[in-house]
Amino acid sequence: MKRIIYLPGLGHEHLDISLKAYALRMMKAIDEQNPDPSKKYRIESADREYDVDGTTAGVVSIFEMDVNSEEEIYRLYEFKYGRFLTGKLSGSNILYRFIPLLIILVSRLGSVFKSLLSFGDGVSKKSKIQALYFMVIYCFLAVYLILLVPSLLSFIASIMADHHQLNYLSGYIKDWEGIFQAILVSFSGFMLFMPRSKNVFSEMAAEYIGANQYLSAGDQRLLMMGKLSRLIEVMSEEGTDITFEIHAYSFGSVLALDALFPYEAEPSYRIKNNVTRLVTIGCPFDFIEIYWSNYFNDRKHSGVSLPVWININSDLDVLSTKFDGNPAKKLAFIGSEQFWERHQCIDVTYNMINPKRISFFQMLMFYGVRAHQMYWDNHVDSRSCLSYVVES
């Protein structure tokens, strides 16, 4: 039986990236690649407590069946790190999230411009331009939502203008009243057609702030790496000579790389010796280097015995990264040619459509960012990139 630790990406608003959905997609890929059509498959789901504070991990088992027998062939564990990443913002109001978000975005503009002017870093100009465009649009969105507060005050003041205690407020905002009311009306219309947008934007802001704190200051990193190590330790206690794979999507790939290749501290014994394969899907390595330059530089491999790393990317996805054909990028990450000679890093490009067909208008509509969700569909019976992951 093979064991897998699954690290999902951030955000579940538009795409089902849960452990159960991942396991179902994987089960479909296993079934389609099995030359024996008589084999059938099913899954079982449960939650397992793995730490003294009651922290749980989702567990999904994939069973292979024939007429006479049934065998558990995969057991997948989900490391739910999102609760730790955004825990400090849990329950906070939208202003408390978007004001820090705006400050963070503005502070990162210098890094993006510096990246745009640099050459030979392995990041395409298209990705850099779309990263800048994405940041500017998000800045406008943050400003727009922050301005809702004076807009609401203007609306209240206009209703209660006959109360003398609010006259000073009405006079102060009179010159801006038309603009504020236009913002409030436009937001009301926006909420009418997209009633969930407030929650979606609020969650995205919390995740971006949490990710920024993690990448900039290492906030919650010790906790998350400790929890991941504990989960691996509990898995290893299930038998003798237990090995496992790590499968990670999007920001989960960052945590996987941090666990395997930390900057200074050595990874745990199990991580160094028991990981047989790393699978990263849509790894935002280059995108992070644009905003947080040198984040991945000078990592230590510390005797990690990882034999195979499969990196699934897409030419359409500006958040994904390619490593093959760029030795400078590899050596900046881990500066040992011997390491890269001993360890395979296999890039698998997964394009659902021809990248040359993407127009400039589609780029303006964030197609390169939305393509980050094109490794699978919400429907678990759809085609997915996991056909490249399953070992036949």
Rank of each mutant, 00 (worst) to 15 (best):
F361T: 13
S250T: 10
Q373S: 14
M374H: 10
R221Q: 14
P284Q: 13
Y388A: 14
H379C: 07
I179M: 14
A217R: 04
L102H: 01
L7I: 04
E341W: 01
G87S: 14
D315E: 15
I346L: 15
L386N: 09
S151C: 05
E391C: 03
L116P: 01
V279A: 06
M374W: 13
M235I: 15
G9M: 06
K322Q: 14
R75F: 00
E78I: 02
V380G: 06
V304G: 04
R196D: 15
V200R: 01
L255R: 06
F261S: 00
F360V: 11
L278Q: 06
A332M: 02
I73H: 01
F187N: 14
K125Y: 10
F190I: 07
V200Y: 06
Y133V: 05
L148P: 05
R42D: 11
T280K: 01
S197A: 14
S38I: 03
N34Q: 07
E64P: 03
P195E: 08
L15N: 08
S61D: 15
L132R: 01
L7S: 05
G82L: 13
N167S: 13
R25E: 11
F323C: 07
G239V: 05
Y144P: 01
T276M: 12
V234Y: 00
K28N: 04
L306H: 03
Q344T: 12
V308H: 06
P355F: 05
I246C: 12
S336I: 01
Y291W: 04
F287N: 09
E70Y: 00
G9Q: 04
K227A: 13
N297I: 02
K114P: 00
K330G: 06
E341H: 07
R370I: 12
L260P: 00
K329L: 12
L105V: 04
P327L: 14
L306D: 07
